[in-house]
Design a protein around this nucleic acid. Structure first.
Lengths: 350, 350
DNA sequence: CTGAAAGCGCTTACAG
DNA sequence: CTGAAAGCGCTTACAG
């Protein structure tokens, strides 16, 4: 299993093929300037001897750095969700600094189209060799993707709902299934009643994502428990009073509501209302885990959060680009994150 | 933030300190043969210039390999649990092969003390520079640990219930809290009744682990719902008929049992019985996720599994030794794994 | 106690 | 199209 024999290197290949080191190097990297005859000969020897390049040596002698660009919303606003992928990206950055990898981040305000366009132009005119981004701005980024394609720059999506065929890799959570999971959890909490599905609209949350989750939920209920139904409600105003008003009215008119499903990362807004409200227990399930959720998890106002390891998504995205650019490895076209379930009793270890 | 200036190396330090390269190297690695005066001078310059060694170059020029030993039960028997840490270890092995890291595995049959002793002796007489093991064989491994201590060989525990002060790191799941979590989940399933805690005894499962989980469960119930009580039962015979007999009798005599808690990885044994049994739904919660559980998850006979990322534990253990031995990094003394919750609807992505 | 030099396995101009 | 040589930033004998 472990062979402790001397590892064969480019020098051995050169000798065996009766060519110079530089020629072997040219063949390995598929560079121009080698006769077909020589190339075939060298490739044959490489295969025969089982030559594997030494990445450490390769990197050491390589002069230029590899720069990976990151295009994501900035973290100081909105749901704060993007803080987590960014943490993973920074972790990868630290680890990969050894390999001459640089990370350049381009952040923007989510609803500032002018700024987004500016960052896209910067990226197009930059010297990056790979790109991490999210697919939630389909309209804005198409031109950037087109540019990447032309320049043969690989890009990786994180938190992307769609699988982009031209991407090196797309990292995402299974949306439909997460809706099923939420339904299953509600079904453990009560046997009959109604689930209120709250669509809290904001720039970033495309309706596609939310509706896919809702479809998953309905599919589960249809198959497993017809005594639980769902009812959708769209909220556009996030003002505390507005939320209170709407929820008070809705719950009063629909006394069978036993659970509330918030298919994005805004549960805390809703939990705030339920903290003050009396009456029968109403179960709350939402997405993503933030500091402000802890209080409500502890009080079991929020019962379950479905999470998608945003930090790991960021880390993986950079790492996959590294594997592709430096290690020349095959990279999975699609990486599906687990559906993590967070409750009062396990959030501390997440 | 990114400084693209030339990175300063050992050569720059040598020049600035007015000494030879070799001397700087000696100081960096704290090797003997440097006058105090020179050492102080060099250290000062290193600090001043912010010198960071280049690991790739360091590794490239280093001649000897680093060998990490792994002492774990073999995977072809029992619960098969150890297959997962081993997978993580193999993943780390592949990744770290670049760094001249070798992994030597020493596996044994769980209940074969003679073989365990033999492997321990092999390890003592081996040339390993680090060790991964599990703390579940406290009696057998004490002498090995003592030997490691004397030889200054770092070791990392995985799946360890105790925090060993001399270990480089201990990787484990929070046991008490996992019991609390199980109780919380049961509490979502029913409001009153009894939970049967099944102790399935086998060599590897120390009573300490199981009782800690049970204590966590009781603590949660005491605090949150007095209408749910627990009842313990010890099973020593895993024969299908024996299990059927005991369970039939117990459930008949205790009609208020609404849930069964199996605080180790043997849920499937019990699920088998419940598959055939009629009557009211009884909720099942167990630990760890195996292929044979899938069938029962799908049928919702097993409701929840609490998992501790065994694969990641194996990976991390090797990686932490790598960080310590090669990168000379600080390593956390204790790494606590998240309490993952697996159900019918998310196991596919785990 | 200190230093000069070779070498790790590649890549990169440069020369032919 | 091909090769000889210098160099990446360290470590390792060897000499003094």
């Amino acid at each position: 299993m472990d062979n402790d024999e001397r590892v064969i290197g480019i020098k051995d290949v050169a000798k065996a093929a009766n060519v110079a080191l530089a020629t072997v190097d040219r063949v390995i990297h598929n560079r121009a300037g080698v006769s077909v005859k020589t190339k075939v000969k060298v490739l044959k020897v490489i295969k025969q001897m089982g030559y594997k390049p030494n990445i450490m040596a390769s990197n050491l002698s390589k002069s230029k750095k590899i720069v990976i660009g990151v295009l994501l919303p900035n973290i100081s606003e909105g749901s704060g969700y993007w803080e987590f992928p960014m943490q993973g990206i920074l972790k990868a950055k630290k680890e990969l600094a050894q390999y001459n990898i640089k990370i350049k981040t381009y952040t923007f305000k989510q609803d500032n189209n002018k700024e987004i366009r500016k960052k896209i132009l910067e990226l197009i005119n930059s010297d990056i060799q790979g790109l991490v981004l999210t697919s939630k701005f389909a309209d804005e980024i198409e031109i950037l993707l087109e540019d990447c394609k032309q320049k043969n720059r690989p890009y990786v999506f994180i938190d992307s709902n769609v699988r982009k065929i031209d991407a090196l890799s797309s990292i995402h959570q299974p949306l439909f299934e997460s809706g099923e999971l939420a339904a299953q959890l509600f079904n453990y909490c009560f046997n009959k009643g109604e689930i209120l599905v709250l669509h809290l609209k904001k720039t970033m949350d495309t309706e596609g994502i939310i509706s896919l989750k809702e479809k998953g939920m309905n599919a589960y209920l249809k198959e497993n428990n017809n005594a639980i139904t769902t009812k959708s409600l769209v909220l556009t105003d996030f003002n505390e009073d507005a939320i209170s008003g709407v929820l008070f009215k809705t719950l009063k008119e629909n006394p069978f509501i036993k659970g509330v499903f918030i298919p994005n990362s805004k549960v805390a807004y809703i939990a705030k209302y339920f903290e003050k409200r009396g009456g029968d227990k109403i179960y709350l399930i939402g997405y993503d885990f933030f500091r402000e959720d802890i209080e409500y998890l502890e009080k079991e106002i929020i019962d379950f959060l479905i999470c998608q390891r945003p930090e790991e998504q960021g880390y993986q995205a950079v790492f996959k680009l590294f594997e592709h650019l430096v290690l020349k490895k095959e990279v999975e076209k699609e990486i599906i994150m687990p559906l993590d379930i967070i409750t009062k009793k396990n959030y501390k270890y997440y």
